[in-house]
Amino acid sequence: RELRDAFREFDTNGDGRISVGELRAALKALLGERLSQREVDEILQDVDLNGDGLVDFEEFVRMMS
C-alpha cells in the first residue's frame, strides 16, 4: 500500500506509468538536487525491464526493493 501511494506521487499525470520527466522531478524532490539527463537515463535503463521507456508499477516495486 505504501509503495502504491509512492507510485501515485511519482506518476503525476495518473496514467499508471512514470515517464522520464516524472522520474526526473521525483528524484529531484527526493534528493534535493537535479540529476543530469544522463544520470536519469541510466536509472531508467536499469529500472525499465520491458524497454518501453516508462516505469510501470511492477518495475517501480522492484526499483524500491
Score class of each variant (00 low, 15 high):
residue 56 D to T: 12
residue 27 L to C: 12
residue 7 F to N: 00
residue 50 N to Q: 11
residue 41 D to S: 04
residue 33 E to I: 09
residue 4 R to Q: 05
residue 30 L to W: 05
residue 8 R to W: 04
residue 11 D to A: 01
residue 62 R to W: 08
residue 20 V to A: 04
residue 48 D to E: 15
residue 48 D to M: 13
residue 51 G to M: 13
residue 48 D to H: 15
residue 56 D to P: 12
residue 61 V to M: 04
residue 40 V to A: 12
residue 55 V to P: 00
residue 45 Q to E: 09
residue 28 K to W: 09
residue 58 E to S: 11
residue 42 E to W: 06
residue 62 R to Y: 06
residue 42 E to Q: 04
residue 45 Q to S: 07
residue 62 R to I: 05
residue 7 F to Q: 00
residue 2 E to P: 05
residue 18 I to C: 04
residue 11 D to H: 00
residue 51 G to V: 12
residue 11 D to L: 00
residue 51 G to A: 13
residue 53 G to E: 06
residue 32 G to A: 09
residue 16 G to R: 03
residue 46 D to A: 05
residue 5 D to N: 10
residue 16 G to Y: 01
residue 4 R to F: 04
residue 2 E to W: 03
residue 9 E to Y: 05
residue 46 D to E: 07
residue 42 E to S: 07
residue 2 E to M: 02
residue 12 T to G: 10
residue 28 K to P: 14
residue 54 L to A: 05
residue 20 V to K: 01
residue 18 I to F: 01
residue 6 A to G: 03
residue 38 R to V: 11
residue 47 V to K: 09
residue 19 S to P: 03
residue 41 D to H: 03
residue 23 L to A: 15
residue 13 N to Q: 00
residue 2 E to A: 02
residue 5 D to Q: 11
residue 35 L to M: 03
residue 62 R to G: 11
residue 58 E to V: 08
residue 50 N to V: 05
residue 2 E to Q: 08
residue 32 G to H: 10
residue 16 G to H: 00
residue 38 R to L: 10
residue 38 R to D: 14
residue 25 A to G: 12
residue 54 L to I: 05
residue 25 A to N: 08
residue 29 A to H: 07
residue 29 A to Y: 05
residue 35 L to T: 12
residue 61 V to D: 12
residue 13 N to R: 02
residue 20 V to Q: 11
residue 55 V to Y: 13
residue 18 I to K: 01
residue 8 R to I: 07
residue 34 R to A: 13
residue 12 T to L: 04
residue 17 R to Y: 11
residue 32 G to W: 04
residue 30 L to S: 05
residue 51 G to H: 09
residue 28 K to A: 15
residue 48 D to C: 00
residue 62 R to A: 10
residue 10 F to D: 00
residue 5 D to P: 01
residue 40 V to H: 13
residue 9 E to K: 15
residue 62 R to V: 09
residue 26 A to L: 14
residue 51 G to Q: 11
residue 33 E to R: 10
residue 14 G to E: 06
residue 44 L to A: 15
residue 60 F to T: 04
residue 59 E to G: 06
residue 26 A to K: 01
residue 47 V to F: 07
residue 26 A to V: 08
residue 20 V to W: 05
residue 52 D to A: 12
residue 41 D to K: 08
residue 31 L to A: 15
residue 64 M to D: 05
residue 50 N to E: 06
residue 20 V to H: 10
residue 41 D to P: 05
residue 36 S to T: 12
residue 35 L to S: 10
residue 47 V to Y: 11
residue 55 V to L: 10
residue 46 D to C: 03
residue 54 L to Q: 09
residue 18 I to M: 14
residue 8 R to H: 00
residue 44 L to G: 11
residue 3 L to F: 08
residue 46 D to P: 04
residue 3 L to R: 01
residue 53 G to T: 08
residue 16 G to I: 00
residue 40 V to N: 02
residue 26 A to N: 04
residue 18 I to W: 01
residue 19 S to A: 03
residue 63 M to C: 10
residue 56 D to Y: 06
residue 19 S to R: 01
residue 21 G to L: 10
residue 34 R to L: 06
residue 41 D to L: 04
residue 6 A to F: 10
residue 61 V to W: 08
residue 64 M to K: 09
residue 2 E to L: 01
residue 20 V to T: 07
residue 60 F to P: 00
residue 60 F to C: 06
residue 8 R to F: 01
residue 65 S to F: 06
residue 34 R to C: 13
residue 27 L to E: 04
residue 47 V to I: 05
residue 14 G to A: 01
residue 45 Q to D: 07
residue 20 V to S: 06
residue 36 S to I: 12
residue 45 Q to V: 08
residue 49 L to S: 15
residue 50 N to P: 06
